[in-house]
């Protein structure tokens, strides 16, 4: 495995959950100190989450949407120059989830606002020169059910609107030269192998994001999934976990934090139970040459996570 091209997702910075010192993550200085440290850990490529929430309320220090980047750097090109000066050559991908917009009983609001900002994320990805936009096709099941208790009765109609929305987005992505990849979030309506059904209903340009931890939590062997669907993989997320959903956690309101037994679902890559070395070996054997991104979502120490991941990648056969 040539690890030089592997990107690191900046989702390793905890933006949303309480912890001491979290407030610094909202200031520009934090990120500009971070970039050289990312490069020092051996990463020349990054993935950026696209989070519209930082556009609201004047918190533009978090560089995770177009408004914030424009506010601080003028435009995407200005931001890329700052990254380059810090040793980060490229933005490999952008990821987006529409959870924020599932906040009331109006599906028109969800598809309207969520669709708008997904389009923004796509255009921003193109401006940044990214290869892919990894998109969560739905909010979490429990989040939808919170505002739509009749979700099961509405599931077919919700799916139809999702397909219409993503079809339009896929056509725009193709025109912009960005690969649209579906994330198999274990908490979504299309978690696990259900992601294949959704992909079948979308244009053939739409690919699947092989996110190893999400598949593992859903009880699917990521290596077997890779073997079966390698031709449909648009990007790979090397993620780790020790957790397998015992049943209905994926349907709960906050499935990333299992209610009955607290646990850190996403572990720093290399510290969980996913055979990441085996996955990377299979990727090589199958001739996969698309984007690969490491993610330490939910890490409790981003700087330790950076080095843990570098240590893991250094152990892989060259």
């Amino acid at each position: 495995m040539d690890t030089a091209a592997i990107a690191i997702s900046l989702d390793l910075i905890n933006r949303h959950y309480q912890e001491p010192n979290r407030n610094r993550f909202e200031s520009r200085y934090f990120w500009e100190e971070l970039y050289p440290l990312v490069a020092a850990a051996g990463f020349a490529a990054i993935e950026l989450p696209y989070e519209p929430v930082w556009q609201f309320g004047g918190r533009s220090g978090v560089p995770f949407n177009r408004y914030c980047v424009n506010a601080k750097y003028g435009d995407a090109a200005g931001y890329r120059r700052v990254l380059a000066e810090s040793g980060i050559d490229r933005v490999r991908g952008v990821c987006f989830d529409p959870n924020l917009f599932m906040r009331n009983a109006s599906l028109d609001f969800y598809f309207g606002a969520g669709g708008h900002f997904a389009g923004e994320a796509l255009a921003h990805a193109a401006d940044l020169g990214a290869d892919y936009l990894a998109i969560s096709p739905t909010p979490g099941y429990g989040r939808i059910a919170q505002y739509h208790p009749d979700l099961e009765a509405q599931r077919s109609a919700f799916t139809d609107r999702t397909v219409t929305w993503l079809t339009g987005l896929a056509e725009r992505a193709e025109g912009l030269g960005v690969t649209l990849a579906l994330r198999p979030d274990y908490w979504g309506l299309f978690g696990g192998e259900r992601i294949l059904q959704l992909a079948d209903a979308l244009p053939s340009s739409v690919r699947i994001d092989l996110d190893t931890a999400h598949l593992f939590v859903a009880g699917i062997d990521p290596a077997a999934f890779l073997d079966a669907h390698v031709g449909r993989i648009g990007c790979v997320h090397l993620t780790d976990t020790d957790f397998v959903d015992p049943g209905e956690v994926w349907k709960s309101p906050n499935p990333e934090f299992p209610r009955e037994r607290a646990t850190q679902v996403f572990r720093d890559p290399g510290t969980g139970s996913v055979d990441l070395a085996g996955i990377t070996a299979r990727l090589d054997a199958l001739g996969y040459d698309g984007p690969i991104t490491c993610s330490a979502r939910q890490t409790r120490d981003p700087f330790r996570a950076l080095l843990r991941i570098r240590h893991l990648l250094d152990q892989l056969p060259r």
């Binding site: 909202e26 200031s27 533009s60």
Partner: peptide, 10 residues
């Protein structure tokens, strides 16, 4: 100024 609540330099 634009977005002054969270300062750039901390």
């Amino acid at each position: 100024a634009q977005d002054p609540e969270i300062t750039d330099d901390g």
